[in-house]
Amino acid sequence: MKINSSLIPGKGIFLALFFSLHIGVNAQKTEDISTISEKDLTHILEKNRSFYTQGKVANYIPELGKMDAQSIALSIVGKNGKVLNVGDVGKKFTMQSISKIIALMIAVSEKGEAHVFDKMGYFGTSQPFNSFSNLETSGKPLNPMMNAGAILTTSLISGDGEKPFLKILDMVRYITRNQTLDYNKSVYESERSTGHRNRGMFYLMKNNGLISGNEDQLNNYFKQCSIELTAEDLAKIGYFFANGCVRFDGDSQYKNAEIAQLIESQMLIAGMYEFSGEYARTVGLPSKSGVGGGIAISVPGKMGIGVFSPALDQHGNSLAGYHMILDLVKQYHLSIF
């Protein structure tokens, strides 16, 4: 819109104010994230530490119920592989549903997006992560971020026995550049022995003709959920998808902007389950949570963020983790919107 400044009283003051505000907003939105310091992160962590008292550790899986609710960590990975960690950065926890984005990447890489999404939807959801939604009507999972879709995704990865799981584990090790990562056998056994709802989804999809294998495929899903890592590892995963499947150290072996866009879009619309819509409004970043207390966040083209606090809200998302992300996003204007 062209402004006729000759018609405005005090036009010099008006235009100066207009352009200073305009430039100020743009400068604020493009603030250099390299200015984030360990001190800043520590302040954010300590401000939100007490939120654990309002949440609950996931005890429906007995081994997860043993987690220390007071544990908390925050990590960011930026350009040139710069890493900042605060809190209980050495504390390991299981990936749980965060592993779903790795499995989706592998399945789509092997079979193609059309083949994978012919068997499930791209939909968001108003239902919890372990809902049977859609399976009894259309017969297909709503999306690959809910348990049913994730179980199906893992079953689509090529290989017999535990080979699909080993592909997921190797990819997590590659992305994090951490060959010591492995799965927690106690958590795996706990998930397998109590995972009757997931088993029901598996057999319902098998009945619908979506799955043709045996329970080895379901066991691979339980194993991938049991992979242990740290908040820093999550930040590196977030960075990987934020930067077109390029690793934090610049390794571009798996570079693929299309797959990164697919993963990030699913993280945005369904990565926080039925809270995803509100989360998109308040945080506005592709994110994936897990009931182990972790959240992996991608700031497209910029950085990865990893948070950990095992006390969960009613949706199954880390309560203190969410509030740490929210503060970080507000302070540094990281939302994509």
Rank of each mutant, 00 (worst) to 15 (best):
C225L: 06
I157S: 06
P128D: 09
S155A: 14
K223P: 03
V283C: 09
Q266W: 06
V299A: 08
I3Y: 09
K302H: 12
V83F: 01
N243R: 03
S138D: 11
Q54E: 15
C245H: 04
N147K: 05
G284Q: 12
G271L: 00
S99T: 10
E215T: 08
G321C: 05
G321R: 04
D40Q: 03
N4C: 07
K163T: 15
S298K: 07
G277T: 07
I98H: 00
L328I: 13
N130S: 06
Q127Y: 15
S212D: 10
G209Q: 11
F19E: 09
R247M: 08
S75Y: 01
F222Y: 05
D88W: 02
D182P: 03
A270I: 01
S133F: 11
E258C: 03
V57W: 06
Q261H: 13
Y322C: 05
V291R: 05
H333N: 14
G294F: 00
S276W: 03
C245S: 12
S109F: 00
V246G: 14
I157N: 02
A311Y: 06
R173I: 09
Y279H: 14
S252A: 15
N26P: 10
G81K: 00
I102E: 00
F123I: 15
V329F: 07
G306D: 10
P300T: 12
P300E: 06
G55M: 00
L262G: 12
K2D: 13
N147Y: 07
G124W: 01
I13D: 14
Q28R: 12
D68Y: 04
S6L: 11
K330A: 15
L218M: 05
N317E: 02
R247S: 12
T125Q: 05
V283P: 00
L84A: 05
A235L: 09
H196M: 13
K92M: 07
N143E: 04
L156W: 08
Q224L: 03
E258Q: 13
L135K: 01
I98G: 00
V86F: 02
L21K: 11
V299Y: 11
L64W: 10
G290N: 08
Q127K: 14
N184Q: 11
G244V: 13
L181N: 05
R197E: 08
Q70I: 06
S71V: 07
F308W: 03
D182V: 00
V86I: 10
M67R: 14
I102P: 02
L268G: 04
Y183A: 02
D160L: 09
K255F: 10
N184S: 12
I36P: 10
S75P: 12
M267K: 09
I72S: 06
T176H: 01
D251G: 10
G124N: 02
D182I: 07
T153P: 13
L17K: 14
M272I: 04
Q127A: 15
Y254S: 05
F222T: 01
I61M: 03
G121N: 09
N214G: 06
I3K: 13
G195P: 10
Y322M: 03
I44G: 01
S287C: 09
F51I: 09
I102A: 02
A114K: 15
N220H: 04
K167M: 09
K39L: 07
F51P: 10
N208A: 03
V187Y: 03
R281I: 14
A242V: 05
S71L: 07
L229P: 03
L152G: 07
P300A: 00
L326F: 07
S34Q: 10
